[in-house]
Amino acid sequence: MSEPSTATVRHAGGSGLPWAWFGVAPFFLFAVLFLILPTAFLIVGAFQTADGQFTLQNLRDLTHPSIVAAYRISIEISAASAIGGAIIGALLAYAAVGGGLPGWIRPTLMTFSGVASNFAGVPLAFAFLATLGRTGLVTWALSTWFGFNLYATGFNLLSFLGLTLTYLYFQIPLMVLILTPALDGLKKEWREASQILGASTFQYWRWIGLPVLWPSLLGATLLLFANAFGAVATAYALTGSSLNIVTILLYAQIRGDVLHNQNLGYALALGMILITGVSNVAYIWLRGRAERWSR
């Protein structure tokens, strides 16, 4: 590819010599010790009985109704907040990139998205309790100014809808951050060319915009899904242990073996790795497809 410089000549075939690998040894040692082995230990444990025999019973036990329910609610909340976050985030990003708004809007949105996508966990739960909780500002404003009792409608912040609404607070900004570069990749010339050929806005999006953008859109949605699926702190601070999602179940299991079977806990973790793993592999594959257009 590039011309061999003096350094590569001097260390001819350097990348093949074992000593060159010493430079990355600390990194890989660290990754093995604190990332790969701990995970591998759990995966192995998922296939063992308490006294170390091989078994598939733990995986079978995952089909217990309460565990299945926990996975289901987790997947539903993650999917709802990922799809909602993706749609709203994409609209916001599009409005900032191609909406013809003043120039200061875009950097402001990007900075704010950087902050909000990192404003998760316990403080986020507090913020939503102070806003939409029973004595929160919005709840109070609705009943005082409009005579509308939010909680009489059956709304509860400590529920599916409440948690999804809270997750959107970091999901939407994350989508904005991921999608804005992809939107920049939509070339103006394509739009102009399609207009010259007489295409309507709908036709432009149907035949050009979305086909180019869909791997980015879908990939980002999957990333958002995994992001919500692994979240613990927000849900725990918001609902305590009243909402049966899989991260909170696992948290309780680590704390006090609520499943009364350590190895079933490992299987629970394995199930989570599989779900986030599949969605991330799909994301990486889709990103590869999306990059074809950005060259």
Binding site: F34, P38, F41, G230, I254, N280
Partner: peptide, 21 residues
Amino acid sequence: FVTLLPLVIPAIVIVFGYLRM
């Protein structure tokens, strides 16, 4: 790929692994 793994493996799973290992 290795640097992206912490986005794939949920934090709670990593710490669970620490407690076991």
